[in-house]
Design a protein around this nucleic acid. Sequence first.
DNA 1: GATGAATGAGCTTTCATTCAT
DNA 2: GATGAATGAAAGCTCATTCAT
Lengths: 199, 199, 199, 199
Amino acid sequence: MAREKGLKGMESRERLLAAAAEEFANRGFHETKVSTIVKRAGLTQPAFYLYFPSKEAVFDELVNAFRTRLHALIGSSRFEAQVEAQDVPKRVRMAVETFFRFLEATPHLTRIGLFLAPKAEEIKKELIALIAFNLSAEQQAGYFRSDLSMKTVAECLVGIVERLTLSQLLPGIKSPESLASQVVDLLLYGMLSMKHTSA
Amino acid sequence: MAREKGLKGMESRERLLAAAAEEFANRGFHETKVSTIVKRAGLTQPAFYLYFPSKEAVFDELVNAFRTRLHALIGSSRFEAQVEAQDVPKRVRMAVETFFRFLEATPHLTRIGLFLAPKAEEIKKELIALIAFNLSAEQQAGYFRSDLSMKTVAECLVGIVERLTLSQLLPGIKSPESLASQVVDLLLYGMLSMKHTSA
Amino acid sequence: MAREKGLKGMESRERLLAAAAEEFANRGFHETKVSTIVKRAGLTQPAFYLYFPSKEAVFDELVNAFRTRLHALIGSSRFEAQVEAQDVPKRVRMAVETFFRFLEATPHLTRIGLFLAPKAEEIKKELIALIAFNLSAEQQAGYFRSDLSMKTVAECLVGIVERLTLSQLLPGIKSPESLASQVVDLLLYGMLSMKHTSA
Amino acid sequence: MAREKGLKGMESRERLLAAAAEEFANRGFHETKVSTIVKRAGLTQPAFYLYFPSKEAVFDELVNAFRTRLHALIGSSRFEAQVEAQDVPKRVRMAVETFFRFLEATPHLTRIGLFLAPKAEEIKKELIALIAFNLSAEQQAGYFRSDLSMKTVAECLVGIVERLTLSQLLPGIKSPESLASQVVDLLLYGMLSMKHTSA
DNA sequence: GATGAATGAGCTTTCATTCAT
DNA sequence: GATGAATGAAAGCTCATTCAT
């Protein structure tokens, strides 16, 4: 009789969260009805309010979940920086790839936290700041052109990631690896063909 | 057809459109109430339905207005491209700058057509295709690296423009010129400092 | 074509107010449903919210209507005080009678403002203070026993009026005149028979 | 019957009753949630329904508790009346004082049974009848003016007690003794100063 | 060309109450 | 004796939309 106290409740809650995530991701906040969420979770409306104070609260919880995982990812990526015996391009590619992989892993949360949430801009701002900080280190190490603003570069990178996530990654058209290598190739080496570059 | 006659009617319609654009841009589709739009336009709710069949219809009309202007812009830019004998970097920079200027000119429409509309993805897809087409010409002329997919580059460019528009252009933090030159500098020459590039 | 602007709306509003007053008076705040009010007024629920921001707001409006009339009554009763060539008992009786008449005139408002409203206590407190003030004048003129606290007397008077209003006046069992004379007779002369009083 | 056994059960039941009494007294019937009652009693909602068939049932039980005690009080006071050979004023004062003391002893029940219950009017009607009966005896003994309706006097007395209970006794502003002597003084001797009385 | 007045449809939320254990 | 989990039923409120003038 392993009476897991509160197990069933937790499961219901998780089911509601998952259903909500999917609905929000597919239809947005307003088009998502509590009635649909609970139907998907096999429950009734009052059950929803047993676990969440309001529809907005679930949404916020999902946004925060995304944010938390995002911060966790970035925190852990700092460690790898120490193992950096690799060359810069490879390191950058790995980082971007990891990020794409992260976004791909929880597509609903990604859509919510990156595109739907009113807080999305704020979240991106944080992200950009962190990336800019990391890039600056490389820049000071002489790897990147000193006349570029890493803040701007970070912003561009995030813009690219957003777009490709929406148009290629989430629809499953391209893989994190392929996207990462294309993006990094472009950003590191630029578009110009060599003959012009050296001009 | 019934829309041709009546000066006052046209003016009311325009006022409604403008009010709707501002509200939609600032609050999004669902947060925007018809009652607010008409208040802003100094009219009443039935008047709204005199000019538009539904709230969605106004929104669509605004989206289409954006799309139309966008197409006009791109159509005209083709011409210039042929007349010009300038060097590639300058040409690209001018094109991007023109585009930023275009987005800055009608900020409400930009926010609606580029970020709020469900159709936004479709609009961007068109835009990306056109840009990719133009870039391919340059690529075939040998200006751009032949190992890059211009489709992808176009996508990245649009992603960058989206992000910078939202974070720098619309808030009035940076000018079209400065944004264009930063973006183009990055995309054309890449991030790597010369010593590494030549490696 | 006496196009009374807003006449129909005003009428609807009044119908809603009247219906609400009756429902509130008969069932109390919580048992009264907006759906019942609008049915009684021959309207639909949204119409209710066209005229009142919430169910509570109508209730408050009714309470305030009572309070306002009450203050008006008291304000006007001051005037009569100047015409006072009459003897004290008659004067007091007239005042009490007027008050009963006032309560009888708008029975729903009376029930709401005097018995149902959370503010009822406050309203009575005001009323008591005013009555005490008036009584004190008579007391200082030597008409009332100087060892009585007019504040307490006022409180007793209001308590009596409350009770008789509920049990005799509103059910239509006794008239304002008969109630007033009984009350005043008791309060002025006391219960004791003469032989004991003089003891 | 099923309620006889079980000490712990009885205790839980009492805790629920006490919690309910306090909540009802402070917030009224509708504002009081079953969830709040059980929280206060340290139990869960199903436990509530183990002891009471419904929320209304607890309320009724509390009202009846008040009524029962009230009847007990009145029953016992009859006895004393016969034993006493004291003068009328003192006797009346003692009775009123006893009553105030009774109301003060169980303030929650008082608020519920005297002011909140729909049955309150009925309860008061009974009380008034009993008081009127007692007063009539004194009246027939020649102590009270024969031209007064003891029914009305009883009603006035109850009205006064109600008001003073709410505004002075329950808030702890005045004591049963002081209230009783003020009330009785007023009711027995009236407001008029002697010179006018004898006129 | 425009409005005062009204509504259908639907939403989120609340609460007393019960089932299964 | 008690609880975790769930629900039926309904309430208040909002909004895009329309009718009659």
